[in-house]
Design a protein around this nucleic acid. Structure first.
Lengths: 229, 229
DNA sequence: TCACCTTAGTGTACGCAGTACACTATCGAT
DNA sequence: ATCGATAGTGTACTGCGTACACTAAGGTGA
């Protein structure tokens, strides 16, 4: 079966930059290509937009296929449509980025897990297509957006310490933050819920746990507070 | 002649939100549709992405066809890909926005000029497709970006007074600004070139003219200055 | 059990930038 | 000469970002 149109059409794909945070740093999930072009080269998870799904659904499907995760933070980035970005034929791709909580979820061993791996954002391999440009845009967006939107929590476990939170910001922004100023700032924003729990199994004084509270955040921003780290 | 593919493909279009500034306020250029669907309804200028042009080129071509202008500020916004946004068939569209200097250029009388008109952003007619959503995104982007990037100058004549500059910001941001604070701010940013000219043919004290100086702006931002209105 | 190691947790002083606010200067028109 | 309209100018206050160092707590292991 084939589908005919009066004029030629570009193929339409989505590609996802999936960010995760571990002790090493900010990581990106890549897939090793099994087919030409760029066989053996690492690439972003992605694929064609089906005719019966929205572009957001296509991105979410790719994300689920690679990680098994649903309900994660996913946002459209930018659409790349240069003529020769795919050597086979004209392909326009819609770039997305996602933020994954690597602590609370065990990622499913994807059928092609052998071909998937996490790479530190500061030490990426050579990539297929123009995927390096997509990752660069995603990182830039994440760095700027994390400063004025509470999206960084998506990278952390649901319960976290203030030190973990600070480390997350330091890792994403790639610069050190002052501990006292950081705590003053996030606590006065009044969007964290202080829990009656401390972290367990640590070889030093245990830190108090906090949780992001959406309702408090909305209330605080309505009252004119600027979230800004 | 027709083009066949193994799998069905969405059509790919671009739509441009073209902003202009006049004495009334912030305006958007719309086209009255001559064909179904939405015949007679106002819509954004736009059309199909050709197979031999990048998506940016497609947007620039549409812009040129409607305004006759080249070399204007044009930026990609967002890609909309819901299933039923066009009743005829699956169409994915890439939204763009452009900023036009209505003072220095006389827009060409487009062949279909009778079907094109400027509308005040605060008083838009009912629109075809999901073009109201695209305009809303464009306005939101413009409002936020104008505060930290020197893109507002694209809406002004090359030589302008500080009052014109302030009015532009007030119109885009839809809120009043304090005159003395505004002047202090833009002058200390050191990105304006003070000219040895004053405005002509005004029935009151003539104001000094200024010009945006890209080199000064770059130098100022390199030295850590934040452009922020 | 006690000394040590590691991380948690806390307050103050300074400087700069945002903000609020009102009068004089200039020019053309009548 | 007066009027009308817009240009152009300075100061004081307040709040926020920033720089900076010590004590508290709890597990480890000699």
């Amino acid at each position: 079966m084939s589908f005919s149109y009066q004029f030629p059409r570009p193929a339409l794909t989505v590609d996802c930059v999936i960010f995760g945070l571990d002790n090493e740093g900010l990581m990106v999930l890549l897939i090793k290509r099994g087919l030409d072009p760029f066989r053996g080269r690492w690439a972003l998870p992605g694929g064609f937009v089906h005719i019966d799904e929205t572009v957001d659904e296509a991105a979410r499907r790719e994300l689920r296929e690679e990680t098994g995760l649903q309900r994660v933070f996913l946002e459209q980035l930018y659409t790349l449509g240069d003529l020769d970005r795919d050597p086979r034929e004209r392909v326009v791709t819609i770039g997305y980025y996602a933020l994954i909580n690597l602590h609370d979820h065990r990622l499913k061993a994807a059928s092609d897990a052998a071909n998937a791996a996490w790479f530190d954002i500061v030490d990426l391999p050579r990539l297929a297509f123009d995927h390096d440009a997509i990752i660069e845009m995603a990182l830039k967006r994440l760095k700027s957006k994390v400063r004025y939107c509470p999206i960084g929590f998506e990278l952390l476990p649901r319960k976290f310490t203030l030190s973990q939170l600070q480390r997350m910001y330091e890792t994403v922004l790639a610069r050190p933050l002052d501990k006292r100023n950081f705590r003053k700032k996030v606590l006065q924003l009044d969007m964290l819920e202080e829990l009656d729990e401390v972290e367990q199994d640590v070889a030093h004084r245990a830190a108090r746990l906090y949780r992001f509270n959406e309702a408090k955040y909305v209330k605080a921003t309505e009252q004119g507070f600027n979230f800004e780290i």
